[in-house]
């Protein structure tokens, strides 16, 4: 379980995350949604100890992320931020293998190799494995980064906009892959999503943030409602029931 209590963060005088208290259950797929500037990414970075927080605490399975050694946490929780820009020229295989770094410290064992093969396979990167990241398209690169995180094989996986740069078919297979790893492998997947319908169809749990605060949380059935979405985004929404999914339209 991830327990976030009273977490705040400001950049200069702007309060970006304002006293968020939240507990994310173990297992399942949780989406964090909300308008731009709601503090979603900042909150996620603080949960993964990439950003220091001004106040509050985050505890993952009893480990306080600000105190626990980075090494220990790296085997429990992984994060992929958006806009990953690498100066280092690495091949896809190199990058994915570095996902095993918390276990092997750069000297991968046979077991590590298995993890690498599986992750490359899951994300359909077999043909690209010897290519350098700077020779790939944005979507291919995004898949390579996700493969690295899968390879890290942590109980908790955090993704900031994992569908960035992906076309429709890759978006769908990415969401299925992440949902399946939550369902079948007992992983806890938390992601920041912009696409409400992906959040609605694939999440077990939706967290809504607005103006740096926790606005609402619940199941897709609780959250994906005309009046709620219209209020969150300040835009007129219609919500339809289609094949058992709740689909929002706003055009």
């Amino acid at each position: 379980m991830i327990e976030v209590s009273g977490v705040s963060k400001s950049y200069g005088k702007t309060l970006v995350v304002d006293g968020v208290t939240l507990s994310l259950p173990k297992g399942g797929l949780t989406s964090i949604i909300g308008p731009n500037g709601a503090g979603k990414s900042t909150l996620m970075s603080m949960i993964a100890r990439l950003l220091p927080m001004d106040a509050g605490s985050v505890v993952v399975d009893g480990l306080d992320v600000t105190n626990v050694s980075g090494d220990v946490l790296a085997r429990r929780l992984s994060i992929l931020r958006q806009d990953n820009h690498l100066t280092a020229r690495l091949t896809v295989t190199d990058l994915v293998t570095f996902g095993r770094y918390p276990y092997s410290k750069g000297r991968p064992t046979l077991e590590d190799r298995d993890h690498v093969e599986r992750a490359i396979d899951y994300l359909g990167l077999a043909d690209l494995r010897h290519r350098f990241l700077d020779e790939l398209s944005g979507g291919q690169r995004q898949r390579a980064f996700v493969a690295m995180v899968l390879c890290q094989d942590t109980d908790y996986m955090l993704f900031d906009e994992p569908l960035n740069n992906l076309d429709i078919s890759h978006s769908v297979s990415m969401m299925k892959l992440l949902r399946d790893s939550a369902r079948d492998l007992g992983k806890t997947v938390v992601m920041v999503l912009h696409d409400i319908n992906f959040a609605s169809c694939y999440s077990d749990h939706i967290v809504v943030m607005r103006d740096g605060r926790l606005f609402l949380q619940g199941t897709p059935t609780d959250i994906v409602r005309q009046e709620i979405l219209s209020e969150i985004y300040g835009t007129e929404f219609r919500v339809h029931e289609l094949d058992g999914n709740r689909i929002a339209t706003f055009y």
Partner: peptide, 20 residues
């Protein structure tokens, strides 16, 4: 060498992989 490669991926990647 591996530590420097990971560091070359940036601070966020390094922290995620548990590297100081």
């Amino acid at each position: 060498a591996d530590r420097f490669t990971v560091a070359g991926m940036g601070e966020d990647f390094s922290s995620n992989l548990g590297l100081n």
